[in-house]
Simulated scan of single mutants.
Amino acid sequence: MGELRSKIESTRGGVMTAEVGAVTGTLELVTTVSDGTVEVRVRYVDAEDLYTVEGSPTKTALPEAECHGRICELLTTPGEKRGFNEDPTTLPDEIS
């Protein structure tokens, strides 16, 4: 039960956070799984401030590494398109 980290490229719409809204570009993803719950945070690479991804914490039954990989996929999959814009990515109620 520790933190897993990966560098990801956001989609055009970015990753929606609770603190500052959508963040875009090259981000560091940080996940922590504990007792069926995963906390998901992101920050700009080489920055100090971590931001909570919208929907975090969320439920999971997946092993830590598999959950982290699935979240990487979710946050780098483009959101719904609205005209010329793309919705930012968020987390579902459960990571499976």
Rank of each mutant, 00 (worst) to 15 (best):
M1A: 15
G2E: 13
G2W: 11
E3D: 10
L4A: 07
S10G: 14
R12Q: 13
R12E: 13
R12G: 00
G13F: 07
G14D: 09
V15F: 11
M16L: 15
T17C: 06
T17V: 02
T17N: 06
T17H: 02
A18N: 12
A18V: 15
E19I: 10
G21R: 05
A22C: 03
A22S: 13
G25D: 00
E28Q: 05
L29H: 15
L29P: 11
T31G: 03
T31W: 03
T32N: 11
V33R: 11
V33M: 09
V33G: 06
S34Y: 14
S34F: 10
D35K: 11
T37P: 00
T37Y: 10
T37I: 11
R41M: 12
R41D: 04
V42L: 05
V45K: 09
A47K: 01
D49Y: 02
D49Q: 10
Y51T: 03
Y51G: 01
Y51H: 15
T52A: 04
V53P: 07
E54V: 12
E54F: 10
G55T: 05
K59N: 04
K59E: 14
K59G: 01
T60Y: 08
T60D: 06
A61I: 01
A61C: 00
E64W: 14
E64V: 14
E64A: 15
A65C: 03
A65Q: 05
E66N: 08
C67R: 13
C67K: 07
H68M: 07
R70A: 14
C72K: 14
C72R: 13
T76N: 08
T77K: 04
G79T: 13
G79N: 13
K81R: 15
K81E: 09
F84Y: 14
P88S: 02
T89P: 04
L91Q: 12
L91K: 12
P92R: 03
D93L: 04
D93R: 04
E94K: 08
I95V: 10
I95T: 06
